[in-house]
């Protein structure tokens, strides 16, 4: 393999990894604060992707601009899901909570996916922007504009979330609740409002990831569970409890997948994520950026 094609593979790994990072961040946020694992996160991502697709199809809106529509829609979906389903689980304790969240969100995965097939048909949809196919050429390595933009948005989102969590009042309330919900409640934080806000924020992050996925890969109702899986692997890699660590961990997964996929053949590329998952559990169960418990 020439240096150039290796570099190209590496760069594409970074691009893909940025999306993995954003897809995982929403899940990590919900997991870190509500201590629930939302298997339906990928389905929220899929819904976000459809919001982008319809904005593009109906109004010719640029997919990156349509985030302004997709994010509020998914924020509302997140609020609704929290009110109807998840707030019943968040009251449970410990193992019972995580187990029930797994079961319920797995059921929800099926519901949302089949509703999407019913509403949007099972066809794969793509968004073709005018500047697709064009890009920068840097020392023989192609950097398509859509992917550069996607990576940029992923990065900006990570920084914005970091600012929100560490520098603003509601953000600090979220982190405080993640740390110790009883102490947070004693300090006067309305933790149920925090849970609701966090879940809706997680759904909004899924909307961003869904838009990026739609622009770069296209979308169909069945993609949800695949992205849930990527997000779960990234979370384990980053370390459960590390929210912002999802971004570098996502990039790492993207790069490792891309480079090793070039060696073992792309049809076996999916296996790598699973191997990484198992290796991390055996060698470093607290993850790369997680705190030692």
């Amino acid at each position: 393999m020439s240096i150039e094609s290796f570099m190209q593979t590496l760069v594409f790994g970074v691009f893909v990894g940025g999306i993995y990072g954003i897809a995982a961040m929403g899940l990590a946020l919900v997991f870190g604060v509500l201590k629930m694992l939302n298997i339906a996160h990928g389905e929220l991502l899929m819904l976000g992707g459809y919001a982008t697709f319809w904005a593009f199809r109906s109004f010719g809106m640029d997919p990156f601009v349509s985030l302004a529509i997709g994010i509020p829609i998914l924020f509302a979906v997140g609020l609704a899901l929290d009110r109807t389903v998840y707030h019943r689980i968040v009251r449970l304790l410990g193992e019972e909570k995580i187990k029930n969240s797994l079961l319920v969100s797995f059921g929800l995965t099926l519901v949302i996916q089949n509703l999407a097939v019913w509403l949007f048909t099972a066809d794969e949809r793509t968004v073709q922007v005018a500047y697709a196919g064009t890009g920068l050429n840097l020392l023989g390595v192609t950097l398509p504009y859509t992917r550069l933009l996607a990576l940029g948005i992923a990065l900006v989102t990570t920084l914005a979330l970091s600012y929100f969590l560490h520098r603003t009042y509601p953000g600090k309330a979220i982190l405080g609740t993640a740390e110790d919900f009883e102490a947070a409640e004693l300090a006067g934080i309305n933790i149920h409002r925090v849970y609701m806000l966090t879940f809706a924020l997680g759904a909004s992050l899924a909307a961003i990831a869904g838009t990026l996925v739609t622009v770069i890969y296209g979308i169909s109702p069945s993609i949800g569970i695949v992205w849930t899986l990527k997000a779960l692997i990234v979370i384990v890699l980053a370390g459960t409890g590390s929210i912002l660590g999802a971004f570098p961990a996502g990039i790492l997964l993207g790069v490792v997948e891309a480079t090793s996929g070039a060696f073992i053949g792309s049809t076996y590329r999916e296996v790598i994520g699973l191997v990484i998952f198992l290796l991390v559990l055996v060698l470093r169960p607290q993850g790369l950026f997680g705190r030692n418990q």
């Binding site: 298997i39 899986l229 999916e270 296996v271 994520g273 699973l274």
Partner: peptide, 8 residues
């Protein structure tokens, strides 16, 4: 892990 192995 089980979800992962099934999907992969």
């Amino acid at each position: 892990g089980t979800l992962g192995v099934a999907e992969v």
